[in-house]
Amino acid sequence: MKLKLRIICLLACLPLITPAQLDTVIYMKLNKQPTSKEKAFYCITLLKKSDKKFVETRFQKHPDIQWSQTGYSKIKVLSDSVLKVKKYQDNKLQLKLKRYFSPVNDSIYYFEEVDKQDHLWRTGYTKNKFPLHLVQEMKTYFENGQLESIRTYKDNRCIESTHWHEDGTPAPENRAIDLDSLAEFPGGQAELFKFISKNIRYPQQAKNKRITGKVFLQFIITDKGKVSDVKVIKSVHPLLDEEARRVVGSMPNWKPAKFMGKHVNIRYQVPINFKLIGFW
């Protein structure tokens, strides 16, 4: 079965914290393997606030070589086997949990994460207590206790994943494996948006009715680089939806994504903004 992934275009950028402020900086490639700062796609920083308090921050690099913060965690060491973790996104507290560890052997720990309401949130195996360095298997759970996902890791890289909906039905296309490389439009992301801007034709009827908005589309870049299965996932108006679908469907072949050295299908999302300027 060919692999399908869902990739969301991230455009917001924030500066990376100066490494001199930090105790640990880990740079990783797209496939979560260690690399240099210049070649990195992800970055994890660890700041020691005291002997028992730390801040773990995660970043992602964008095509314009800017970094954006994807979230951070405040970690408090309660004992050798228990951590208290507060997870934040957009500077808002998202989750409070405790992470319990038990040694499997000299190099691997089994861990369980339980939230404030004593719901089991995640279990797995890791080489580090923080930042986690995942190995073997990790499971995540919904609040109702239903299994959400099982992911297989090899040296911190997700190489296989299976997901379910909250009612227990399979979600076969919701995959989260760590690719070697993403699918790429010829010339990169900047050229992608230039292509859309150059080829979009604002429907006259939509202009007359002053219909505006942002249409979100989802499509597959096949292992041959072809664009297929174009769908509108957030509609504005049938006139704009159809034009957005037409433009995406007319795109040239992409450079296909790679996983474990082989080309694979990848599911991609892109927004197309219809805006009338100087139109009254």
Rank of each mutant, 00 (worst) to 15 (best):
M1L: 13
M1F: 12
M1S: 14
K4C: 00
I7H: 10
A12V: 12
P15I: 11
A20W: 06
D23H: 11
T24R: 10
K29G: 08
Q33R: 13
E38R: 07
E38T: 09
E38S: 13
C43S: 04
I44D: 02
L46P: 03
S50I: 13
K53S: 14
E56Q: 15
T57F: 00
T57H: 00
R58D: 02
H62K: 11
P63T: 12
D64C: 08
W67G: 06
T70V: 10
G71H: 04
L83I: 05
V85F: 05
V85W: 03
Q94W: 03
L95C: 08
R99L: 06
V104K: 15
N105I: 10
I108G: 00
F111L: 07
E112R: 08
V114A: 11
L120V: 09
K127L: 10
N128K: 15
Y141R: 01
C158T: 08
W164C: 07
H165R: 09
E166C: 05
T169N: 09
E173L: 15
E173R: 13
N174D: 14
R175F: 02
L179F: 01
D180P: 02
S181K: 04
G187W: 08
G187S: 07
F195D: 01
K198D: 15
I200P: 00
P203H: 03
Q204G: 08
Q204S: 11
R210V: 10
I211G: 03
G213A: 07
G213E: 05
K214Y: 07
K214G: 09
V215M: 11
D223P: 06
G225R: 00
G225N: 06
K226N: 12
K226R: 12
S228K: 12
S228T: 14
I233L: 12
L239S: 09
L240V: 08
E242Q: 14
A244R: 01
M251Q: 03
M251N: 02
K255R: 11
A257W: 00
K258N: 15
F259G: 00
M260E: 08
G261I: 10
K262C: 08
K262T: 11
N265G: 07
I266P: 00
I272F: 04
F274E: 02
F274H: 04
G278R: 12
F279M: 07
W280I: 05
